[in-house]
């Protein structure tokens, strides 16, 4: 997945699409930005200058789908997090999760969320739930799986047509919802895919590349200042204005 930050307007359509697709319940009373279930969120990063000189960039942030040695897979005591060798997707399985939150401690991208409350839908809203994604219960962790419900449906459809799964068969909900087409999704291993072309452009970068987690979500921006501000070490830069 490649996200073009120059195209992102911060509208939040991807966040909504993600929540609807994945049966994320409405926030419980008392939820804070730090206790909500936001598999996908858009972070606004300012350059620290005051108005009117300030420059902001919107960063859509979800599970970065790290490569083989993900920080979260190895730490889970009961194999509730897996690395899918076939797709390269890091999958979270809430039905296996015990709720120890070790994976959340391990994730440098803070892309994992805990069900602090029992999920509740207003009466009638449960009719709108997506049947391809199971709802979760209180006390388990969850995160972006690149819309696994859509992947499963696409696989079934391909099987019904007696053909292998094609790259265009499925797109995550956020990709589909983005009005500026800022997110490109596809097979990074296929050198002819659009996403590979986007990923090989010199203005792409990954978050916290130094950690060696090898995220499969790439970001791109033509602005060197944006690239610089998102790749430098947080801890060495101070007084950054952050709005979640």
């Amino acid at each position: 997945m490649v996200i073009d930050l120059d195209r992102c307007t911060g509208c939040g359509a991807c966040v909504i699409a993600c929540a609807v697709e994945n049966n994320v319940p409405p926030a419980h009373e008392g939820t804070t930005p730090r206790t909500g279930l936001t598999w996908m969120r858009v972070v606004r990063v300012d350059d620290g200058r005051s108005f009117p000189d300030t420059r902001s960039v919107f960063v859509p942030l979800m599970c970065q789908q790290c490569d083989h040695h993900t920080p979260c897979v190895s730490v889970c005591p009961q194999n509730a997090v897996e690395y899918d060798e076939e797709t390269g997707i890091v999958t979270q399985v809430p039905v296996r999760c015990l709720g120890c939150r070790y994976c959340m401690t391990a994730c440098p991208y803070h892309a994992r969320y805990f069900n602090w409350w029992d999920p509740e839908w207003p009466a009638g809203m449960e009719q709108t739930l997506n049947p391809d994604v199971s709802t979760r219960m209180r006390g388990v962790a969850e995160k972006c799986n690149f819309c696994h419900g859509r992947l499963q449906a696409a696989r079934a459809k391909a099987a019904a047509g007696s053909r292998p799964l094609a790259p265009d068969d499925y797109q995550p909900a956020c990709v589909e919802a983005c009005p500026t087409e800022a997110i490109v999704f596809g097979d990074l291993n296929d050198p002819r895919s659009t996403v590979s072309a986007a990923a090989s452009s010199p203005d792409t970068f990954r978050l916290l590349e130094h950690l060696g987690t090898g995220p499969k979500v790439r970001y791109r921006s033509r602005s060197a200042a944006v690239r610089e501000s998102l790749t430098r070490n947080s801890v060495s830069s101070e007084k950054e204005q952050v709005h979640g």
């Binding site: 076939e86 997707i89 399985v93 799986n145 499963q152």
Partner: peptide, 9 residues
């Protein structure tokens, strides 16, 4: 493949 999300949803 025997991965969890092959079947779990």
């Amino acid at each position: 493949a025997n991965t969890c999300l092959k079947c779990h949803k």
